[in-house]
């Protein structure tokens, strides 16, 4: 499928801080792409480079066949952006901001806007300084979602939304994609949101992409947790290369095993005689947390 944006080998320094260190990112047309990583990993920096606000020190970026730094204003007609902390002008009402940003972008679907205002339960008459954090986010979301653009760049767009509104956001994004085939790059720390919405995800850490793929592919790369009741104490399980966190309590065993080593581990269990077996696939949490933690991850990813 065609890529709507491609970044490769992006590097960016701020003084002595290295924000990006060879980051790669590919987003395909029509997909919702999750962009994940711990705080300070470089997500916002990447998005600002994609928007042509920051200039990368090295690496290449293509956005709709253009270069965001040089062709910013032409490319901007085709995208909308919602930052994680929407700031509003204190003396403009929310409705004014939505209309203004839509017009500056080149047009706004009024029916869609009114529908979104309703669904997000947002009062457009309040002045900017009078909105709560969550309501400021809604102003940014309505402004972006109601405009006729091909690409939505959303940087933690739901921070501060209550669970009800979070649900509305998910429905709306799903509709966007189904109806108009819009592409969404969604940076988020809310794993259930990512799981519900994203076709593919990229995980970044320390300014580098450490993982990219569909959720199924990612799951495949991780460990299954196995609890078993055996006929006799196990033998040789501890020496298997893919087995981690092994706990043996008489004939009870509990361990995690890398997916490629599953066969070997099960053979060891059957050798000891299986009386009971529970196998649990990795939760998304475990999957991400492993990437978020420092140290151990790099070596395993390299394999």
């Amino acid at each position: 499928m065609e890529n709507i944006l491609t970044a490769s080998g992006l590097r960016k320094h701020f003084g002595s801080t290295r924000a990006l260190d060879g980051l790669d990112l590919e987003v395909r047309r029509g997909e919702v792409h999750g962009f994940l990583g711990p705080n300070g990993a470089g997500k916002t920096t990447t998005i600002r480079i994609l928007l042509g606000l920051l200039k990368a020190d090295a690496g290449t970026v293509r956005l709709f066949d253009g270069d965001p730094w040089n062709d910013a204003t032409t490319l901007h007609r085709r995208l909308a952006y919602v930052p994680g902390d929407v700031t509003l002008w204190p003396n403009l009402s929310g409705g004014e901001v939505i209309d203004l940003l839509g017009r500056l972008r080149g047009g706004l679907d009024d029916t869609r806007k009114n529908e979104l205002l309703e669904r997000f339960d947002l009062d457009p008459k309040k002045k900017g300084r009078a909105y709560s954090k969550g309501n400021r986010q809604k102003v940014g979301l309505v402004a972006a979602l109601a405009s006729n653009v091909e690409l939505l760049l959303l940087d933690e767009p739901t921070s501060g939304l209550d669970p009800l509104m979070e649900e509305v956001f998910r429905q709306v994004v799903a509709e966007e994609q189904a109806r108009d085939g819009r592409t969404v790059l969604l940076s988020s720390h809310i794993l259930s949101e990512v799981e519900a919405l994203c076709d593919r995800v990229s995980i970044v850490r320390d300014g580098r992409t450490v993982e990219t793929g569909t959720l199924t592919e990612l799951r495949h790369l991780t460990r299954t947790t196995i609890t078993a009741e055996l006929a006799s104490p196990p033998d040789g399980l501890a020496d298997l290369p893919g087995v981690h966190e092994l706990q043996v309590d008489g004939t009870q065993v509990r361990f995690e095993v890398d997916t490629p080593e599953l066969d070997a581990a099960l053979r060891q269990l059957t050798a000891a005689g299986v009386r009971g077996l529970v196998s649990r696939p990795p939760t998304l949490e475990e999957l991400f947390l492993r990437h978020y933690k420092t140290g151990e991850v790099k070596a395993e990813v390299a394999r």
Binding site: L53, H76, R77, L79, V86, L101, L104, G106, G140, A143
Partner: peptide
Amino acid sequence: EPVLVTRVG
């Protein structure tokens, strides 16, 4: 930021 990411240069 929100203004500069529209077609405004």
